[in-house]
């Protein structure tokens, strides 16, 4: 058996107002991506995007999103992503841009990268702390992400088997 190959893009949604991230949902992002691909690459792009494209995971707290593209055309579809300037949600239009952090062949490698990246972000936060209490919180968070890592992986392993 040969499995159907995909590429998973780990993207970060950058917004000016972090609270607006909470309004996002999978469908809004999928619609925005489809729309921009159709705008940049026309009907061909839209066809490629309708094949096996899906939004696999969205974290509205941190603005991380996994996009799945078919392997044969991920470069074409990815080249349309920088042209996203806003995402329409039901309530309002959120001006934002996508920043691609990692491209992986499986969801698992993306997840590993994401955990490492989030730890790195915590390290970046550490010097900006105002008081001792916050510092202690972040230190704890840094330690906890290395412990949870194993448990987390088992839980998400099943996702990988999907085509």
């Amino acid at each position: 058996m040969v499995r159907v190959k995909s590429r998973y893009l780990l993207c970060e949604i950058n917004v000016t107002d972090r609270n607006s991230l909470l309004l996002l949902n999978d469908k809004a992002i999928a619609a925005a991506v489809k729309e921009v691909v159709a705008r940049i690459h026309g009907d061909y792009g839209a066809a490629m995007c309708s094949l096996r494209f899906s939004v696999k995971y969205l974290n509205t707290q941190t603005g991380m999103v996994f996009l799945r593209f078919p392997k044969m055309s991920y470069k074409l579809l990815w080249s349309a992503l920088p042209f996203i300037t806003s995402i329409d949600t039901r309530w309002k239009k959120i001006p934002c841009f996508l920043n691609c952090l990692h491209v992986g062949g499986t969801i698992r490698t993306c997840q590993k990268f994401l955990i490492r990246y989030n730890t790195q972000q915590l390290h970046r936060m550490l010097p900006n702390c105002q008081n001792e209490e916050e510092k202690e919180k972040i230190r704890k968070a840094i330690l906890s992400c290395s412990i949870i890592q194993g448990a987390f992986e088992d839980e998400r392993d099943d996702n990988e088997d999907e085509p």
Partner: peptide, 17 residues
């Protein structure tokens, strides 16, 4: 504007256009 910047890897892929 800060919203008009793009990440380096996005730019690299954009150059394929």
């Amino acid at each position: 504007k800060p919203q008009e910047l793009r990440g380096p890897y996005d730019i690299i892929n954009l150059c394929s256009l």
